[in-house]
Computed example of a mutant assay.
Amino acid sequence: MKVVVVVGGTGLIGRTLVARLAEHGHEAVPAAPSTGVDTLTGEGLKEVLPGAEVVVDVSNSPSFADDDVMAFFRTSTTNLVAAAKEAGAGHYVALSVVGTDRQPDVGYFRAKVAQERLIAESGLPFSIVRATQFFEFADGVADTSTTDGVVRLPGAGVQPMAAAEVSAAVGRTAVSGTPVGGVTEIAGPEVFGLDEWVRTVLTARADPRPVVTDPEAPYFGAVPGPEDLLPGPGAQLAETRLADWLAQVVTG
């Protein structure tokens, strides 16, 4: 059994991760502002981290504005790394995003690169898990890409996966006993065009917005290349296919 503190432990990935770790006999402690832990101010870190063998960071910035997200990950990670070292944690695990190092024009990706660098240079044994887009984010992608009722997206390749399988992969890394000391990539089992993926989800949800394929349309501020959002060779592939996930969430 391991004692694992999950920072961001009440969010989409975190709450599932906490439950999964507990089911497997580990002591999983959620850490979030709602539990009295604020990584931006450092409040609660000295209280929650002592005794933690593993610290898992699946937190996210409340704002995706370029300056805000950079400030969040730099400040939060600096505070977390310092507190984890002081507490004697033996493994620091962070969730990141596939393609962060390929799109420097995307502010969110620049911030994740900064986070990864802080962790890698911390001196802590660490593992960084980069995941592809979550199935659950398709609606959000559509919303940010809608103008005058029309969704415009490029056909860049994506390999999305279910959030539950992201949690499972992060959990396996956290309790594996051997820090990677680098990056592991995880992805879904199928490749889609970004436009095709979102169109499929909107159709299944009976969302009337048309999805137009536009090679010049940006994705969160930049136009991705054909393979910028795809994992490299050796990525761990999840099992849940998009159609099966949609059958569960749309029809129940």
Score class of each variant (00 low, 15 high):
K2A: 15
K2V: 12
V3L: 02
V5M: 01
V5P: 01
V5I: 01
V7A: 06
L12P: 06
I13V: 15
R15F: 05
T16G: 11
V18F: 04
A19R: 11
R20M: 10
R20P: 00
P30S: 09
P30W: 07
A32M: 07
T39V: 15
L40I: 13
T41K: 13
G42R: 03
G42W: 01
K46N: 01
K46F: 00
L49D: 07
E53K: 02
D57F: 11
V58A: 12
N60F: 04
S63P: 04
S63H: 04
D68P: 00
F73P: 02
T77H: 07
N79R: 11
L80V: 12
L95P: 04
S96Y: 08
V98P: 01
G99Q: 07
R102Y: 11
P104E: 02
P104G: 07
V106T: 01
Y108G: 05
F109H: 10
A111Q: 02
V113P: 01
Q115L: 13
A120M: 11
E121Q: 01
E121F: 00
E121N: 02
S122V: 09
S122Q: 05
F126Y: 15
F126G: 03
T132E: 05
F134T: 02
E136D: 11
D139R: 15
D143C: 10
T146W: 10
T146E: 06
T147R: 10
T147L: 06
V150T: 14
R152M: 11
P154V: 07
G155N: 14
A162F: 07
A163H: 04
A174I: 03
A174S: 08
G177Y: 12
P179D: 08
V180K: 13
G182H: 15
E185Q: 10
A187H: 03
E190I: 01
D195T: 05
V198Q: 12
R199T: 03
R199P: 03
L202D: 09
P215Y: 11
E216T: 15
A217T: 07
F220C: 00
A222T: 14
V223I: 13
L230R: 08
G234M: 13
E239C: 00
E239H: 05
R241I: 05
A243L: 14
W245Q: 09
W245S: 13
A247M: 06
